[in-house]
Amino acid sequence: MLLNTSVIEEVRETLGDDMLRSFLGRMLAEVADTHQSLAALFQSQDYATLATTAHRAAGSAASVGAKDLHAALKDIENAARGPGAAADLPALVSGLPDRLEATRAALDGLLGPL
């Protein structure tokens, strides 16, 4: 499941449609920026900062119901903290843009274009 629609509806009911759309737009932009940061951090082998960066973006994704992005970012965070970071991270980080676009498409389908 790409989205947790109950979280999305809860945010919409609490803050309104305009604020929901604003939060979703910011989260999508944050994850796109985070991907660039993660790639650079991987290249420099700064796995601790990479884990922290992924954790922060994962929280943003979770707070607005982007379930698949949250899971992808948690996988990256956990891999960065693990002993196989150098082997595990390339596929996880390189797969993030596809998951971001799938989430964007699902949100557009649910709410209309952001």
Rank of each mutant, 00 (worst) to 15 (best):
Y47H: 02
V64F: 13
V93S: 04
E9S: 09
L3Y: 01
A39C: 11
L114C: 03
D98M: 10
A85E: 02
D17V: 04
G65I: 12
A85M: 02
L24R: 01
A102P: 03
L24I: 15
T5Q: 11
H35S: 06
T49K: 15
D18L: 03
G82E: 00
L28P: 03
G109H: 06
F23D: 03
A29S: 09
R56C: 10
D17Q: 01
S94W: 00
P90L: 06
P83K: 04
L100M: 09
L50Y: 10
A91Q: 10
V64K: 01
G65H: 09
A54I: 11
A72K: 06
D33T: 10
S22F: 04
F23S: 08
Q43G: 15
G25R: 00
L100V: 04
L41Q: 08
F23V: 09
D108G: 07
L107C: 11
L100E: 02
G82P: 00
I76Y: 06
P113G: 08
L28H: 10
S37W: 08
A106G: 01
A91P: 00
N78P: 03
F42N: 03
T53P: 12
L96P: 00
Q36G: 15
A91I: 08
A102F: 07
E101A: 13
R26G: 12
A32N: 12
L96T: 05
A102C: 05
G65Y: 07
A62N: 14
A54K: 13
H70V: 09
G112D: 05
H55V: 13
S37Y: 06
D46P: 01
L2D: 08
E30W: 11
D33K: 08
A86L: 00
L20A: 04
A40H: 02
L111Y: 07
A57V: 12
A57L: 14
R12S: 12
D108H: 13
P90T: 09
G109W: 06
A102R: 14
N78Q: 11
A86K: 06
A66F: 15
P97C: 10
G109P: 02
S60K: 11
R12N: 02
A48F: 04
P97Q: 14
T14Y: 10
A66Q: 12
L50A: 03
V31H: 13
E10M: 15
M19G: 01
G16H: 07
Q36C: 07
T34Q: 11
L20E: 01
A80L: 03
S60F: 12
Q45V: 06
T5E: 14
I8Y: 02
I76Q: 07
D17L: 04
P113H: 14
R21L: 04
L111P: 02
G95L: 09
S6C: 05
T34L: 02
H55Y: 13
S63Y: 11
D17F: 03
D68G: 10
V31M: 11
G59V: 13
S22P: 00
L41E: 06
G112L: 06
P113D: 11
T53D: 12
D46F: 04
L92N: 03
A87N: 09
L114E: 05
A54H: 10
K74V: 15
L92G: 00
D108C: 08
L41I: 05
A66E: 07
R26E: 15
R12G: 03
A51P: 01
S94R: 07
G65S: 12
A72Y: 01
I76V: 13
E10D: 15
D68Q: 14
L15W: 03
